[in-house]
């Protein structure tokens, strides 16, 4: 597999990798680094790449594992200050892209979900993967995917209704 062939196979899902990394790592810089790292790993394993049933699913699993490793090492070094910085960056970016308040509230609500549920929301509601694909990527059963997704959607909705009612009362 030469470089051109490799790129034509792996480039179509580059933004999905990036968005998944950003969902977990929060900062854009970290997500870009993770994307770069993942593509280097794929390039090194290009000989084995055709033996996988779905290269995209394989890449997403690798992204997930890489991000969890990054999060673990970040927690291990206990850089709470750095983490706060990332949050600020995330917010200022939201304002840059002019997302309205209520939409950025959705973003905040999702970041409060458990990481696994965040990933499932990301893959289903944003990337529109089928349940079977998600279960393959996360290496869990399809029913577990549905249970977690339902839980995540209900949590976000309840919180949204709370926010919504609060807004009405305030006015």
């Amino acid at each position: 597999m030469n470089q051109a062939e490799f790129l034509s196979v792996v480039m179509p899902f580059k933004d999905k990798v990036f968005r998944m990394a950003k969902r977990l790592l929060v900062s854009i810089e970290e997500a870009e680094d993770a994307t770069q790292e993942l593509y280097l790993k794929l390039w090194k394993n290009r000989k084995k790449i055709n033996s996988y049933k779905s290269i995209e699913a394989f890449a997403m699993t690798m992204t997930k594992n890489y991000c969890f490793d990054r999060l673990k090492s970040k927690q291990a070094s206990n850089l709470s200050l750095v983490h706060n910085n990332y949050r600020e960056k995330g917010l200022s970016l939201d304002s840059k892209t002019e997302i309205s308040d209520s939409v950025s509230i959705v973003h905040e609500l999702i970041t409060k979900l458990p990481e696994q549920q965040q990933l499932i929301i990301q893959m289903r509601d944003i990337e529109q993967y089928e349940y079977e694909e998600i279960s393959e990527i996360l290496e869990i059963k399809p029913t577990a995917v549905r249970v977690a997704l339902s839980r995540a959607r209900k949590t976000v909705r309840e919180q949204l209704i709370k926010q919504h009612n609060y807004g009405i009362k305030e006015n």
Binding site: K14, D15, V17, F18, R19, A31, E32, Q36, Y39, I126
Partner: peptide
């Protein structure tokens, strides 16, 4: 869905 990576990949 419209968010994308701006960095090009270096192999």
């Amino acid at each position: 869905k419209t968010e994308y990576s701006t960095q090009s990949i270096q192999l």
